[in-house]
Design a protein around this nucleic acid. Structure first.
Lengths: 336, 336
DNA sequence: GGAAACTACGAAAACGTTTTCTTAGTATTT
DNA sequence: AAATACTAAGAAAACGTTTTCGTAGTTTCC
């Protein structure tokens, strides 16, 4: 039993092809009686329109692409979940692509999808991405794109982000309140605007509280766990080691806890720690971890909603807006 | 600048449509000279074939669907990563669908994709799924399916799983070795074969070591965190409370740790804990968590490889085989 | 009561490819 | 030298829809 085509169905029902097509799209040209007849036939013979034929003719695929650096990550997996939940509601399909933080892959992927496979794109850029030629190419083809979390500032479109600057600022102040004198910031890629926002929030808080600039420490981390572990170890082994850490990457948490155990540094006694993280088991770490928790699911939902709403309209134009959904600082044992 | 079609390109190059199509598929009917000319034109005008037209004609979409209950979960997100990595290599596209453990949604999704949108399906069934009518419908349409992790035993196709029975057996023996006398098993849905395998491994180990049947405790958990928390609390509040726990669901970890803190039960002193989990931060929990770690990424890769290899062949037939990739028991603080 | 508008449907064009069928020209065989 | 096979290309059919266009038959309007 293969598929039944509209032609075969038309024959069985004794109506024309166009009648069926129109009936299924609730055209007013079709009388209630024949519409019913068609619907009955559709049910009886389990007819479903071929999506490729339909997309070809309609120039619309009912599919969006989600392009993210990584999925085995609490933020991105939750965001993806948010996106999928919206898409499912409006009968859109979701293609997933991972860039593994590679600009090269990101370009390849965008190139692959720019010819009618998708109606729109949701994207969080790779940490290597520094220019927007590949994005422009997409938009030239009239494929709208909405950024979430890791945005490309120079592109004029909707961007759904969290309040990175403020979160970081508050986190820093929280550490200062708890008595930290020397706070280090573990940064991610310098190309990412979220990283710069976070770093600036951190720096500004230090300045506001008159912290000696010699105590401003920004450690540049990478995508390589080994390298990062080394950096953390180096940081905590030095003479004037910090008494507070703000980590911009969730994956650094393990490194920090491990190094502290290795070097016999007590958390929060000798070192207080805050991480940008969405892990719900942060509370059962030892000690429980103070986090800046991003509204990942909500960010995904919002970005998807904006894109899909735009796609419903005839004249699709996405406003160049910035939607900020605040993170929350969850204070736990590691900053006690 | 919209897309350029094959027709327009043909005009510009002064060749026929079919020549271009053939040149691009390396047909021997095209001379080296014209092939070069065509390729140059393709580059110059940035021509990419429209995938819908191509799929329609070729009856092949170069797309697979991944259907899983959840993505914000360390196992599934890693498996998805494995799948995507294979698909990217062979230029296949990946549609993602979440069932949220709902049989109803699972059926809807399969119904949606069964008419040419995808060439094949990779799936881990929902915990509610108890029959395979919806799967049969897919296969009637000649769409192959490969199961991973949560398989439907009755369906004849490839299944990529881990050694649930053995893992559970070993985990139970590990607890017995560490002196546990009363071990409880926290189960997931009774419909899932992996759950039954794990439970049987647990039971068999108890029998082998002559544990009194009154000390066999299987707690049936659900998909509702609240409910599960209640069950765990009830379990640990009872008179004859267990001194060992094997949790079949990663998400139960938090509940167990929380309840222990609440009731002042020390891990591993009064209760030893093992969880089926892929969280890489299990090592920095307090105490660090002994886990049965599944080869999630490998499972995803393997399942994808089998499906995609089958799709390359003319006559697609997937052997009814069972591929077992072993989990590893990582002994840590919670069973010390 | 004739023109105009509307209703309900079918025929045919169109979407952009891939593939099959032809064909003109050249090379090979007998 | 005629018959045959091969080469390289184009013309046209096909994939399964949606949409435009055309048209009988009916209703509405002066």
């Amino acid at each position: 039993m293969g598929d039944i085509t509209i032609k075969e169905l038309a024959q069985k029902l004794g109506v024309s092809i166009s009648t069926i097509s129109k009936a299924l799209s609730n055209s007013h040209e079709i009388s209630a009686a024949t519409r019913e007849k068609v619907l009955a036939g559709v049910r009886k013979y389990k007819y479903t329109p071929n999506p490729n034929a339909s997309s070809l003719r309609k120039k619309r695929s009912n599919t969006i692409a989600v392009i993210i650096p990584e999925v085995a990550d609490s933020f991105f997996s939750q965001a993806l979940k948010g996106i999928e939940s919206i898409a499912q509601n409006v009968d859109y399909h979701v293609l997933i692509y991972l860039t593994y933080e590679s600009f090269y892959k990101e370009r390849m992927i965008l190139n692959e999808i720019k010819s009618g496979r998708v109606d729109g794109v949701l994207m969080s850029i790779s940490s290597e991405t520094s220019n927007s030629h590949h994005i422009t190419a997409l938009r030239d083809r009239n494929i709208p794109i909405v950024f979430f979390d890791r945005v490309l500032e120079e592109t004029e479109t909707a961007k759904v982000v969290t309040d990175d600057f403020e979160s970081s600022f508050k986190a820093t102040e929280h550490l200062l309140e708890r008595g930290c004198k020397h706070i280090a910031y573990l940064s991610t890629s310098r190309h990412l605007s979220i990283n710069n926002d976070r770093r600036n929030g951190y720096l500004e808080a230090l300045v506001k509280h008159n912290i000696d600039p010699s105590k401003h420490t920004v450690v540049q981390c990478s995508n390589h766990p080994e390298y990062n572990l080394g950096m953390v170890r180096k940081l905590l082994q030095q003479e004037e080691r910090p008494d507070g850490i703000i980590a911009s990457i969730e994956k650094l948490t393990s490194s920090i806890y491990d190094v502290c155990k290795e070097l016999n540094i007590s958390i929060p006694g000798q070192l207080k720690v805050i991480t940008f993280s969405n892990l719900d088991i942060a509370s059962i770490l030892s000690p429980s971890l103070t986090t800046i928790t991003q509204p990942a699911f909500e960010i995904g939902r919002t970005a998807a909603a904006i894109l899909l709403k735009a796609l419903q309209k005839k004249k699709l134009a996405i406003r160049n807006e910035r939607i900020v959904i605040p993170s929350v600082l969850v204070k736990r044992g590691s900053t006690n």
